[in-house]
């Protein structure tokens, strides 16, 4: 293990390390802790200029209720779910198919197509913006959650395909050969042999795509305008304009908006990190 485990060092270093950990953590999360503290601060506290001191009175319930009652944030969050969940299902589902195709078969143009999927992943969004907006308008899906879902599914399929293909390649190929010998059709092999083994990959991709899409801001501003379809990221930005200087509300709103991916991350941490660090280690 590198660096040398502190357990092997002398007592003084161990104590120092155990002290340095929480201190650095507080420092690292300082902006976030400030927001959390402010979200439970009362308006009076802020008006009196007490921004950073200990709150004189706590109004956790009041602030969070106010956020939901005085703003459409509840609707925004619902919209975010309406965009995120179908996208996760769509993108992961499609990439199971494409990943299977690239991982199992050798076919003409396969490599080229695969690299197209990978390269498409890195493209700046702006080069897609004008045509995708135009297409969404023409389909009559501008300002709807479905319009966002379709684009996100297509775009995320690129990343997911790379992931699935590498995962399927690592499976023992004998399984597939054995199934073929037994006369299974290709579809049966996909459904009965490969799919059950892909559960960890599906879990990892689902949490990752969930977070990416939940946090998307650019496409939410490009493809949606109205309150009825606006996801919470773009919604929060517009609320920030309305809540000028009502920092206790802005911070409570931010925390509400951030919560779903955060919960997802802590629940599925292992899968999340497995997905994110794909390729960071050899093989």
């Amino acid at each position: 293990m590198f660096p040398t485990p502190v357990a092997r060092l002398d007592r003084r270093w161990q104590t120092l390390y155990k002290l340095a950990l929480p201190v650095s953590l507080v420092f690292w999360l300082l902006p976030l802790l400030a927001v959390m503290l402010t979200s439970i601060r009362s308006a009076g506290d802020l008006a009196a200029g007490n921004y950073w001191g200990w709150p004189r009175d706590f109004s956790l319930v009041e602030n969070y209720t106010a956020v939901f009652e005085n703003s459409p944030i509840g609707a925004y969050i619902l919209n975010s779910f309406k965009v995120t969940i179908p996208t996760v299902i769509g993108a992961v589902g499609l990439s199971c198919l494409t990943g299977f195709a690239f991982g199992i078969y050798r076919f003409k143009g396969g490599l080229l197509l695969f690299f197209l999927f990978v390269a498409g992943n890195f493209v700046p969004f702006q080069i897609l913006m004008v045509p995708v907006r135009d297409l969404t308008l023409k389909l009559g899906l501008y300002d709807t959650t479905l319009g966002l879902v379709l684009f996100h599914v297509a775009f995320q399929t690129g990343f997911c395909t790379l992931f699935m293909r590498n995962f399927i390649r690592a499976l023992p190929f004998e399984l597939i050969e054995a199934a073929r010998v037994e006369g299974a059709t290709e579809w049966q092999i996909f459904l009965r042999v490969v799919m059950p083994l892909m559960r960890p990959a599906i879990a990892a991709l689902s949490v990752l795509v969930f977070t990416f899409i939940w946090n998307d801001y650019f496409w939410a501003t490009v493809l949606v305008q109205g309150k009825h379809a606006l996801p919470v990221t773009a919604g929060l930005y517009s609320l920030n304009g309305q809540w000028l200087a009502a920092w206790h509300l802005v911070s409570a709103g931010s925390i509400v908006a951030a919560l779903p991916p955060v919960v997802m991350f802590f629940l599925m941490q292992k899968h999340f990190i497995a997905g994110l660090t794909l390729g960071a280690t050899k093989g």
Binding site: L94, L97, V153
Partner: peptide, 13 residues
């Protein structure tokens, strides 16, 4: 197997 994903990807990306 490729068709659905590839068509979406082609149209939108």
């Amino acid at each position: 197997f490729l068709a659905p994903g590839a068509i979406m990807f082609a149209v939108y990306v």
